[in-house]
């Protein structure tokens, strides 16, 4: 029956299809405004609404929305401060943007008829590569060639260096891949699972359909947690990479 659902008009992968809403082509490069771009626009718009609306009055004793805005702000600010130190605070707006973008992207994807742009490897890899390149440049600007000492853990005997340096270099180089794959795979798996289970509800009918319905309900709650958690992990890892670049061990 799962097969039937997968091959039907609404397969589990169909939700990830990109539709060109406004086809644009500049110099042979396709930059069409797609459903993915639409939800990115929603994410930006909602973030703007939240922060602009919540901080319009700037009360000493915050209201509900102002509390939400302050809570998110302090959450990310504390994350940057405790993981990358006070010197990383100039990059706080970047980490904050990253967190909000992914958070809203994940949550918007869980809305009915929503599109999850964080479930596209192009998007997650785009962000991960920018972070990787940016952090590496920052490291070289801050420490010059000393930045290479990042690949030699402190107190390593010289003989061990021949094994450890390639290992460290490898683990550094795969950072953009792990960073982008983690978010991409989590979002993809969650949405596929929800779709497949939702297909079972119809297929099993009125009597047995309740079982997958309950499962979908539970997994939706879990996905809400994952949506927050993945945004948090992405921002947290960015902080840790920043820390590596700013404070060499």
């Amino acid at each position: 029956m799962a097969h039937e659902a997968a091959e039907g008009a609404h397969g589990p992968m169909e939700q990830f299809e990109i539709h060109r809403l406004i086809p644009i082509n500049v110099g042979g490069v396709d930059i069409s405004y797609t459903n993915s771009a639409l939800f990115m626009t929603f994410a930006v718009g909602l973030t703007f609404l939240l922060f602009w609306g919540a901080t319009r009055r700037r009360l000493m004793v915050p209201g509900r929305w102002q509390s939400v805005a302050e809570l998110i702000y302090e959450f990310v600010a504390d994350m940057v401060k405790s993981n990358a130190g006070k010197e990383a605070m100039p990059y706080f707006p970047f980490v904050f943007t990253l967190f909000l973008f992914i958070l809203f992207g994940n949550f918007l994807g869980l809305m009915p008829y929503g599109f999850t742009f964080t479930s596209h490897i192009a998007v997650t890899a785009g962000m991960a590569v920018v972070i990787f390149v940016g952090v590496t440049i920052l490291g070289f600007v801050k420490h010059g060639l000393h930045f290479f000492s990042l690949f030699v853990p402190p107190g390593t005997p010289l003989a061990m260096c021949f094994i450890l340096v390639p290992l460290e270099l490898f683990s550094y180089m795969i950072r953009p891949i792990t960073l982008s794959l983690r978010l991409f795979a989590n979002m993809l798996a969650g949405h596929v699972l929800l779709k497949v289970l939702a297909g079972f509800i119809i297929a099993l009918g009125l009597f047995f359909g309740w079982v997958p319905l309950l499962a979908v309900f539970g997994i939706t709650l879990l996905e809400l947690l994952v949506a927050f958690l993945q945004a948090y992990v992405f921002a947290l890892l960015t902080c840790i990479y920043l820390n590596d670049a700013i404070h060499l061990h």
Binding site: Y33, H120, V123, G126, M127
Partner: peptide, 11 residues
């Protein structure tokens, strides 16, 4: 390319 372009713009 469309995703990366709009990612850049919206980010």
């Amino acid at each position: 390319s469309p995703q990366l372009f709009w990612l850049l713009v919206s980010f």
